[in-house]
Design a protein around this nucleic acid. Structure first.
Ligand SMILES: Nc1ccn([C@H]2C[C@H](O)[C@@H](COP(=O)(O)OP(=O)(O)OP(=O)(O)O)O2)c(=O)n1
Ligand SMILES: [Mg+2]
Length: 693
DNA sequence: CTACACATT
DNA sequence: AAACAATGTGTAG
């Protein structure tokens, strides 16, 4: 506020620092962005963190310059060619539009903060943030008025709002309330996809039909039911696909809803003036690049600049951008995917003491190994992640001949990787294991499928548009199946963080955009479905409706993890830990879902009784519930097994195909697959080569 | 495959 | 004083 200087000559260095904290977000209406910018800058400048941010920004600026130069070099002939390419792709994409489904996205308002206020009403009306001085998970709307928001360090937030009250995170609480909301969601779509503890996607097509009522009415009813059951408010978005529904739920947040009719014209009108940054998958960097290089700020401009996008970006990236311009998104259903990697990392005060670093490494290996054991995982690729004292991140990986999972094996190989980096001053060490064996995909026919998939790639790939992905399994009401993980961490005191897993919604792609290509993906998803397994045997039993065509969603598992770490704070019972670190309850529990879900759905009636066997377990017994669901899962798996022949299964089994290369999407772009050149050879040549010089 | 970058919660 | 953690995905080489 007051930057009282009227003088225009005064230097304002903070204006050059681009924080993400001033981006539009619900509750940021009357915020004095200039002040936030200045305070964040003042609190940041001179720090190692800040210097690294500046370095990264400089690289992005370079990237933009480079792309600009390439765009400027395109000849009239090139542009003419790409215009044709773009027009053709737009037509193809548009032909995949499916306006037959009605998707609803629910997003709880200031979730963690709202839950904390329920348990401590005295917080009502006061600016409050959930998290620590190091990191804030979220803030209530009173605090947001000051510019305080998720992902902001607490010490900076306090500067913006001196009276800010800090409340440590308590995942058990959030999981409990999340389960309550899911119970409501389940009534509208038993196959709903949970995107995180506080978000979910529901395909309400069927409910609307059966009850002959509109999406708006369902939204209204669902919101009031959620409020009745939990005392919490949420915001809803209803649209023809998930990508749009997600955007819509943010429009009238908090405690509001927005319905986008299943009408092509309505969609195009809506999407046209929409800032691209509102689309999931388009973050700070992508926004800057599209704006800086092509002057694109709104979705409709994606179509207008289609020729440039096709000329400078990879096929998948440009397809994604074009589909955004058309307002396309995922309308299909499920598929659950299994985790592809598991990792653990820790931040500590920077040190260059090799012995100390090796000790930290061993600690992390221990935690990771423990997490892997909980899920019976073992993998061949080990990746060491390092963050230097200057915040520079490095990764070093090795792919082994054999699968490893023991702490000793991990430490052994990780030490070799670290050794090559010494001497070095680090502030974080992390380890990730991927290339699993376990899950392997067993189940019927995977191998075959993969192969086939490969072939199809070009072909069918087709996709269906949109895609999102999702994840989650969905359902299950209670159990949180899905798992979301949230983690909180703590550093010194308690910091917390968290996060959940993903939601997969729409796109992913991204990547670095670099000059040539970048991003991509869009559709995708498809993939094989696992269904084989699950659906087969089990599915048969229950299925709710069965249908949706194929399997319906399967569950997904998820990942969750936890780590514990040093001490710190609380942790609850074990695995799930409390705040600080993350936690999530479940862990292995998730896996079950998928099967459970499909088949019968294990559900906690009245929130305490198992729908399958009547056993009573209050939702606060997170772990116990997991074990319980595991038990049922195991039952099902056995049944399945006998049928399919999987043999070892363990709890998690199912695996999905996954394969490394990405089957699903196909689009990965040329890169990996040599073959695909078919469709875009021309583009590729021009794009990369000729223009690039 | 490896390394890196981006995104999301 | 103080800037997380976990996962997925794309891409270049
Ligand atoms: N960087 C982030 C983003 C989110 N969260 C947590 C806290 C949120 O309560 C929860 C849900 O995320 P949302 O993005 O939906 O944010 P909120 O629900 O808090 O607020 P909103 O009202 O904007 O949805 O996830 C977090 O810990 N760190
Ligand atoms: Mg929310």
């Amino acid at each position: 506020m007051e930057e009282s200087e009227s003088a225009s000559d005064k230097p304002r260095p903070w204006q050059s620092y681009h924080t993400v904290y001033t981006n539009a977000k619900a509750g940021m209406d009357g915020v004095d962005k200039e002040k936030v910018q200045r305070v964040v800058y003042e609190m940041s400048k001179g720090s190692k963190y800040f210097e690294n941010e500046e370095r990264k920004e400089a690289l992005i600026r370079q990237k933009i310059e480079h792309m600009r130069a390439r765009a400027a070099k395109l000849s009239a002939a090139d542009l003419s060619h790409y215009q044709k390419v773009a027009d053709k792709r737009i037509l193809e994409l548009d032909s995949t539009r499916d306006l037959s489904r009605i998707w609803l996205h629910v997003d709880m308002d200031a979730f963690y903060a709202a839950v904390e206020t329920l348990s401590n009403p005295s917080l009502k009306g006061k600016p409050m943030a959930v998290g620590s001085m190091s990191m804030i998970s979220t803030a209530n709307y009173e605090a947001r008025k000051f510019g305080v928001r998720a992902a902001m360090p607490g010490f900076i937030a306090r500067e913006l709002c001196p009276d800010l009250i800090f409340v440590p995170t308590d995942f058990k609480k959030y999981t409990y309330y999340s389960d309550l909301t899911r119970k409501v969601f389940w009534d509208y779509d038993p196959n709903f996809m949970a995107a995180s503890l506080d978000e979910a996607y529901l395909d309400i097509t069927k409910v609307c039909e059966e009850r002959s009522i509109t999406g708006a009415e369902i939204a209204e009813e669902l919101r009031s039911r959620v409020h009745e059951e939990t005392g919490l408010t949420c915001s809803v978005g209803v649209a023809p696909n998930r990508l749009l529904a997600k955007v819509c739920s943010d429009i009238n947040k908090p405690n509001g809803q927005f319905v986008l009719p299943n009408d092509r014209m309505a969609v195009m009108t809506f999407i046209s003036s929409l800032p691209i940054r509102k689309i999931g998958g388009i973050g700070k960097v992508t926004e800057n690049i599209l704006k800086g290089v092509f002057g694109i700020s709104t979705c409709e401009e994606m179509l207008q600049k289609g020729s440039f996008l096709c000329a400078l970006f990879s096929h998948s990236s440009s397809d994604f951008f074009l589909s955004v311009g058309l307002g396309l998104g995922g309308t299909d259903t499920p598929e659950a995917r299994f985790r592809k990697s598991i990792s653990s990392e820790r931040t500590f005060s920077a040190t260059e003491d090799a012995a100390l670093l090796y000790q930290k490494l061993a600690d992390i290996a221990e935690m990771l190994s423990a997490d892997m054991q909980k899920e019976g995982l073992s993998g061949r690729t080990l990746t060491l992640k390092l963050k230097t004292a200057s915040f520079e991140v490095r990764t070093r990986a090795v792919t082994l001949q054999k699968y490893i999972s023991s702490s000793d094996d991990i430490v052994k190989h990780a030490s070799n990787l670290l050794k090559a980096e010494l001497p070095i001053s680090l502030r974080l060490i992390g380890l990730r294991v991927s290339h699993f064996n376990e899950d392997k995909g067993g189940v019927s026919g995977d191998p075959t499928q993969k192969t086939l998939t490969t072939f199809f790639k070009s072909v069918d790939a087709s996709r269906r548009t949109g895609n999102d992905q999702r994840s989650l399994g969905s359902d299950l009401s209670d159990l949180h199946f899905i798992s979301e993980k949230e983690t909180a961490i703590s550093l010194d005191n308690n910091e917390t963080c968290h996060h959940e897993f993903g939601d997969p919604f729409e796109r992913k792609h991204l990547s670095d955009m670099d000059d040539k290509n970048c991003i991509s993906s869009i559709n995708a998803c498809e993939m094989e479905k696992i269904d084989e397994l699950s659906s087969n045997k089990t599915a048969a039993m229950v299925n709710t409706a069965d249908v949706k065509e194929r399997t319906t969603k399967s569950p997904k598992r998820d990942l969750s993890r936890v780590s514990e770490d040093d001490s710190s704070v609380q942790r609850e019972p074990e695995d799930s830990n409390p705040d600080r670190l993350n936690k999530e309850p479940s862990t292995s529990g998730n896996e079950e879902f998928f099967s459970l879900n499909q088949m019968e759905m294990l559900f906690w009636v009245d929130d305490y009784k198992c729908s399958l066997c009547g056993a009573e377990l209050p939702s606060s017994f997170v772990e116990e519930r997991q074990e319980h669901s595991d038990f049922h899962l195991a039952e099902r798996l056995q049944e399945e097994e006998s049928g399919t022949g999987l043999s070892s299964l363990i709890p998690r089994l199912r695996i999905v195909p996954e394969d490394c290369s990405g089957s699903q999407n196909r689009r990965k772009k040329h890169k990996s697959s040599p073959k695909q050149g078919m469709h875009l050879p021309i583009d590729s040549f021009f794009t990369k080569k000729s223009s690039g010089q």
